[in-house]
């Protein structure tokens, strides 16, 4: 029944096309890198790197080499480094084909909320607002419902937005949905999930 974290990441990896430059958010999106297979995908880290490699072997960490989550990483033969203004120039300029990121809420107009819960500690949006406004395609990977069992796919977001009408596709543990005119369209159901189950777990209008 339904997909686990790794299956969601695997399904998201199937979205990526050969030759793409891609930015992966933290959490499940980070796992997408494990499933790109033979495709030629270059990962961007918005703190100033194209061609992000895996975590270093113990003892080979370099304090000058971290990803946007501040974790130690490694470089590849193709790696290029640049400053933050250049990094967000390529993001804002639409050169990054796709961003895959997590969310607290998505609504049927493609609005995304993933940076702030009023009344709780606010840490900041980091690069999320720039990414969703700038990249070619925004794919959200998240659980279909929150820990109370309420739908995270809403008619209208209730939390402060990260971006308005920015989401193209949503991949959850229950399936894949696209943002289209008038609402969300079911693209596919997860293994063992019926369309009725997916509809029942979704508050947003399904067209």
């Amino acid at each position: 029944m339904a997909w686990d974290r790794n299956q969601m990441a695997q399904r998201a990896a199937a979205e990526l096309e050969d030759g793409w430059y891609v930015n992966l958010g933290i959490g499940i999106p980070t796992l997408v890198a494990n499933y790109v297979g033979d495709k030629d995908i270059t990962l961007q880290s918005e703190n100033g790197m194209l061609g992000m490699g895996p975590f270093p072997i113990d003892g080979e960490e370099d304090p000058d080499l971290i990803n946007a989550g501040k974790q130690t990483i490694t470089e590849l033969r193709r790696t290029a480094y640049f400053d933050s203004a250049t990094s967000f120039g390529m993001i804002r300029g639409g050169k990054i084909a796709c961003a895959i990121l997590g969310a607290m809420e998505v609504d049927e107009k493609g609005d995304l909320a993933n940076w702030m819960i009023p009344g709780k500690l606010v840490k900041g949006m980091g690069g999320a607002m720039d990414l969703v406004a700038g990249v070619g395609r925004v794919i959200v990977v998240m659980d279909h419902t929150n820990k109370h069992g309420d739908s995270k796919l809403l008619r209208e977001c209730t939390l402060p937005l990260t971006g308005k009408a920015v989401v193209d596709r949503i991949i959850t543990n229950l399936g894949v949905l696209d943002v289209v005119d008038g609402g969300l369209k079911i693209v596919e159901c997860a293994d063992g999930v019926t369309e009725d189950v997916l509809r029942a777990a979704t508050e947003a209008t399904i067209v």
């Binding site: 203004a85 967000f88 804002r92 406004a133 937005l161 308005k164």
Partner: peptide
């Protein structure tokens, strides 16, 4: 980042899509 770069380049302001609707 761009506010810093722009300031250093003598550009007092710029337009961006980032944050529209937020």
């Amino acid at each position: 980042a761009e506010r810093m770069r722009a300031g250093g380049c003598g550009i007092p302001g710029f337009y961006t899509k980032t944050g529209v609707g937020t």
